[in-house]
Structures are given as structure tokens and as C-alpha cells.
Nucleic acid binder design. Sequence first.
DNA 1: ATTAAGAATGATAATCTTTATTATGTGAAG
DNA 2: CTTCACATAATAAAGATTATCATTCTTAAT
Lengths: 126, 126
Amino acid sequence: MIRTKQRELIKNAIMESTTHPTADELFQEIRIKLPTISLATVYRNLNMLASDGVIRKIQMPDMPDRFDWRIAVHDHLYCEKCGKVFDFTLPEALDEQIEQVSGMKVKQYSLVARGICNDCMQHEQN
Amino acid sequence: MIRTKQRELIKNAIMESTTHPTADELFQEIRIKLPTISLATVYRNLNMLASDGVIRKIQMPDMPDRFDWRIAVHDHLYCEKCGKVFDFTLPEALDEQIEQVSGMKVKQYSLVARGICNDCMQHEQN
DNA sequence: ATTAAGAATGATAATCTTTATTATGTGAAG
DNA sequence: CTTCACATAATAAAGATTATCATTCTTAAT
């Protein structure tokens, strides 16, 4: 993995992100600094970084993949009101439980919740 | 939701399935009995049945949606070797835990694991 | 500095799954 | 039987991601 300015910009953009940006959001952001960058390059690098364990790819149904610099095990909650994605961490990882219950070897799992976040709950007028 | 033979066939096909078929797999199967059926109809009806709670839609990253007649809460494990999808059920649902940890209102969640199933473990030659 | 070789890029085509569109057909209530 | 809302078939379109490939960079060695 050689060093290129594209990869550098992509990595920095994620590392500085507070949301969980999609490939396209990162593309739009980086484009301002480096207008010649291609969306394919963004995807390519995000996947490389993810498979190197530098960043994490979050895959949720019905929405584009998102990327996260927080590589420690944690899960995600999508707010159906505001569309934001929040992190949460269960007291203990589920790998073992799943193995016990299923009798299979678990390599990884993804836990994604949908609901309403705190902010949106408070602003609700029902 | 009026009664049509297409809907009937789709529902039956799922109810009799032992795997967790995709829309296209169901389409190919039903096509034999009713060659004029359209893939769009299969999708439309599967989504209707799912939102009516008659069947369940299973969404996993990197593969097409699958459908399941088992509507009771349960989770899924995808075997990376043979490609089959297995069911499992944790001792208790996670909604509450997630709510406590995240402080949000959880409407639903999806837990999908990847790994190696029992059969494939035993046939492995490593 | 030069160069050679591998690796990454940009541009775009292609893929895959799913939904939208629209004209046509059909079930069931009167 | 007629009517009309709803469903269907056929296909176009969308949306996200990956593949392709000619071109351009990086890097390490000369």
C-alpha cells in the first residue's frame, strides 16, 4: 500500500469525522480540496483501509455503507427521525453467546438497531 | 389486500421453504407453475407480506434480501463456506439492553453473524 | 537526477438488487 | 353483468458498488 495524496485525504477525512460518513459524503468533501479525485478511488481506499483494520465499514439495510474511525467493537443505531447514526456498546460482545446457541464458529457479527434518538424523542409532539 | 393466485403461490412457496429463499429464487420456483408471473410481483408481494407480519424479511450485508416464514424473533448466521443461512435464538432479546446502553427508543434490530457452520467445520481439512 | 516496475488513479462501463412506471387485466361488491 | 379499485406484467430506472483499463504516480534502486 503505497502512499498517495488521495489515500491521505480520505484517511484524514474519516479520522476527523464525527458523523459516520458514506463514501459519497466523503467524496463530496474531499472533492473541494482535490477536485480531480474519483468516486471509485474513494471506494477503493475505504475498502482497503477497512480490510486493513484501520477503519470500519458499517453496513446497514436500506442505506449506503458508512465508515467509522472507531474500530473498537461497537454497534450502531439509526434514528428513523433524523437519519443520524449513533454508536453504542453492549456490556459484552455476543460472539460467544451466538456460538453457544448456534453451535457454529462465529467470525464476526453485525448488530444494527433502528429507533428514535434522544433528541428526536424530546422534540416529539405526540 | 385482495386475493390473487400470484399472491397465493408466493405465500405458499415461502411457507413450504426450508431454506431462506431470495426473491429471485422464489421467482424461479413459482415461474414453473405460473410462467407469466413477473419478478416485480414477487418483490411487491413479499414486501406486503413482510409489512403485514405474515413473513419476515432478512437483510444481510453483501447479499440479496431473504424471506422467512418464521416470524418469531430470531437471528441469522451465514456460513461463509456453504452459503447457507441458519437460524438461532439468543436466550433473551436485546431491545432492552440496547435501550439501556444507548438511551434511545429501539423499534427493531437486526443481528446477523458470519462464520462457519457445523457441517463445514467437520468437513474441513486444515 | 533517472529509470524501471509495480501500484494507484480517473473515467466510465457494468453489475446487481430493488423500486417506479404504466398500460392492461381481474376480483368482488352491488 | 358492470364497475372500479387494486393487482399484474413488462420493462425502464434508480442507487450503490465494483470492474475494467489506459494512464499516471510512487518508490526504491541505480
